[in-house]
Simulated scan of single mutants.
Amino acid sequence: MEKQFDGKRALVTGAGKGIGRDVAKELVKCGAVTYALSRTQSDLDSLKEEVPDIHTIAVDLADWDATQKAVESIGPIDLLVNNAGINIPEPMLEIKKESYDSIMNINVRSCIQVSQIVAKTMVSRKCGGAIVNLSSQASMIALTNHAVYSASKASIDAITKNMAFELGPHKIRCNAVNPTVVLTELGKRSWSAPERSGPLINRIPLRKFAEVEDVVNAVIFLLSDKAAMISGTCLPVDGGFLIAGV
């Protein structure tokens, strides 16, 4: 494994499961001093057992004050992955205030807050850095029962571009990754039924969903110096879904 992040300090939110967990593990393999943040202590405990060199921090990103304290306690960060996110599928006519608030607080507000904290230290240290935000193909298309989730990910795309624009003069690159369905454990359970997965797969030119590794590789690339001239992009990892039309 190429130690391309030796001497770097990385933070991954939503690192207890799925994509975030594998991103955090890969960052350790690549030499970064890595902090894995999750609200679920048991997930962090199992991650620590699997990767003893990783640093874990438990906090609920819905809690502004607790998040501020927790992220500031980590110290300077060079590489940030805003991966934390939730979805509460509801039909447009049945969206609840509580669902809206929960999705937007975790998916959008926490991304802004964590990025603020991290970017301020990058600016003060004059060291530059890289930020990758996890978005979704849902930011660009309509999906049944995903109105609020889609809105939250469209917000992430817009935030990413604005972050890149404002932070670029400080040598801070900001990008987003927009996957299709990813075959995490949750993704496999949610999309195992052929009658559900079939119509969507048939709209993907490569005729398959994304593996976790596909998204991890994209994130690691955008964090690395190999992407030194890439900033403000929203990179689809979707097998061509977004070029295929409705």
Rank of each mutant, 00 (worst) to 15 (best):
D65V: 08
L44I: 05
C30K: 15
D214P: 12
F209N: 08
L134I: 13
I204K: 06
A147C: 12
R9K: 15
A130N: 10
I86K: 00
N133W: 03
S135V: 00
N82G: 07
S150M: 03
F5T: 05
V51E: 10
A84D: 04
P89R: 01
R207K: 15
N217S: 11
F209M: 10
I243G: 12
A32C: 06
E166L: 09
A36D: 07
G187N: 08
I201P: 01
Q116R: 12
A24C: 09
K96M: 10
R109Y: 10
D157I: 02
N162R: 11
G85D: 05
A158I: 06
G75I: 04
I156E: 01
I19G: 09
K126T: 10
T160K: 06
G240N: 09
V33W: 00
P199D: 05
G232V: 07
E90N: 08
A62F: 00
S150E: 03
R39C: 07
N133P: 04
I103T: 13
L79R: 07
S152P: 02
E94C: 07
I141G: 02
T13S: 13
E49A: 13
N83R: 05
A193Y: 07
K188E: 14
A227E: 05
N82L: 07
C127Q: 14
K17E: 09
D214G: 09
D78M: 06
S46L: 11
C30A: 13
Q116F: 09
E94D: 15
V237K: 10
I117M: 08
K17H: 12
E49L: 12
R189I: 06
K188S: 11
F209L: 10
V216M: 11
K25N: 07
Q113K: 10
N105D: 15
I74Q: 03
N87H: 11
T184A: 10
Q113C: 08
S135C: 08
L134H: 01
N82R: 07
V177M: 04
G20Q: 00
S190N: 14
V108E: 08
R9T: 15
E166T: 09
V123K: 14
K48N: 08
A62T: 13
L44K: 00
S152H: 00
R109H: 13
G31A: 05
T56C: 15
S99P: 03
